[in-house]
Design a protein around this nucleic acid. Structure first.
Lengths: 104, 104
DNA sequence: ACGTTGTTTGGCTATTTGACCAAATAGGCA
DNA sequence: TGCCTATTTGGTCAAATAGCCAAACAACGT
């Protein structure tokens, strides 16, 4: 693996690491519907608000979501909807596994 | 998050965790070209062979690659090429970040 | 200015992950 | 059988991750 390649795959991994958590995938799914503030997401998720805030920071640092302060609250929304295609990718893998199972 | 949802996102996360490593993304990329055995991949990657073997196990458990013993060697290949679309997803996010940068 | 609500940050602990080495295992082939 | 090559497994250690709590911040309304 050359240095160039190394850097390229590190960068790709940086994004995919941000996606590698059930809560963060859930957040992305929710933010696809509409914007939500931290408190609202926290209620839906059912974890400590500081935990949710940190997950949101991870997604923001990966450039997947973006925040916007409005009044008292910080609203988050998807920065690029292209991450949604990730869901179909993941689902494809899962389904394809199931298919393979059936042959055995 | 309902129990059903919890289980769904855990499952999606299970796959995305398997993708969340530069070396594993590199392996996927390489296996897209052709089958390779552990030793060959190890040489390309430049890590300990046991490390590479473990990465391959992770990918195999996620149903992303599949192994096939031939003679003395274990060859790995992509189980479902649909993971390749993951690369364009990740690249999209990165590019979209770059685009956003340019506006600031 | 003060209290209230919403959010982030820092600190701590527990768990998971990734790397290497050494040892065990598996399959050819002499 | 015994050696050799290829691969996996187990152990250990360091680093990263995720969770919660408490404290700090920020912005609103009184």
């Amino acid at each position: 693996m050359t240095d160039i390649e190394k850097r390229k795959y590190d960068e790709l991994a940086r994004i995919s690491k941000a996606l590698a958590h059930a809560t963060r995938l859930y957040i992305i799914h929710k933010l696809d519907e509409q914007e939500y503030c931290v408190k609202e997401l926290t209620e839906m998720i059912g974890a400590d608000i500081s935990t949710v805030s940190k997950h949101l920071t991870v997604l923001k640092n990966a450039g997947i979501i973006i925040d916007k302060k409005r009044g008292n609250c910080v609203y988050y929304k998807l920065q690029c909807r292209c991450v949604l295609s990730m869901f179909s990718c993941l689902t494809n893998v899962i389904d394809s596994n199931k298919d393979k199972m059936n042959f055995t």
